[in-house]
Computed example of a mutant assay.
Amino acid sequence: MIQRFAESTPGGRDALIADEPIGRFGTPEEIAAAVLWLCSDAASVATGHALVVDGGQIV
C-alpha cells in the first residue's frame, strides 16, 4: 500500500519518510526482532503491555 502511494504521488516516498520521526521506514527484520523478543525468555515477565513498533509515528 505504501509503495503504491509513494509511486503514484509526486514526492510521495519523500513525504512519507519526512513524517517518520526516525527519518526512515522500519524494515520487516525490525518488526521480526520485536516479535522474536516477545517469544523469547527475555520477555518472560512482560505482561499487559502493548509493544508499539512504529518508529515513533504519532497517529
Rank of each mutant, 00 (worst) to 15 (best):
D19E: 15
D41L: 06
S40E: 07
A18P: 08
S40N: 05
G26R: 00
G26C: 00
T9A: 08
G11I: 11
F5N: 05
W37C: 09
Q3M: 04
L36A: 15
Q3V: 06
F5R: 13
D41Y: 09
Q3W: 10
I31T: 06
Q57A: 10
A18N: 11
L36P: 02
I58S: 13
L38S: 13
M1S: 04
I22Y: 04
A43Y: 13
A18Y: 12
I2C: 12
I2Y: 05
A33H: 11
T27M: 06
A15G: 05
G11F: 10
G11Q: 06
P28V: 05
D41I: 01
A33V: 02
G23H: 05
R4D: 08
Q3S: 07
I22H: 09
P28C: 03
G26Y: 00
L51F: 04
P21F: 08
D41E: 15
E29A: 15
S44Y: 01
F5Q: 10
A15C: 09
H49L: 10
S40I: 02
A18D: 08
L36N: 14
F25V: 04
A33E: 05
G55L: 00
A6F: 04
S40W: 05
I22G: 06
V59A: 12
E7W: 01
R24M: 08
I2K: 06
G48C: 06
A6H: 06
I58F: 07
Q3Y: 05
A33T: 06
D19R: 15
D19Q: 14
H49K: 10
R13A: 07
V35N: 02
R24K: 14
P28M: 01
T47E: 11
V52I: 12
E29L: 10
L38Y: 07
S8C: 04
C39Q: 15
G12Y: 00
L36T: 14
R24D: 01
E7L: 03
T27I: 07
V53T: 01
S44T: 03
V53A: 01
T27V: 07
L16T: 00
P10V: 04
A42L: 09
A50G: 09
V53S: 00
G26M: 02
A46V: 15
H49D: 10
I58L: 14
R24N: 02
S40Y: 04
D14H: 09
R13Y: 08
E7K: 08
Q57E: 09
S8M: 01
D19A: 15
E30D: 01
E20S: 05
G56S: 04
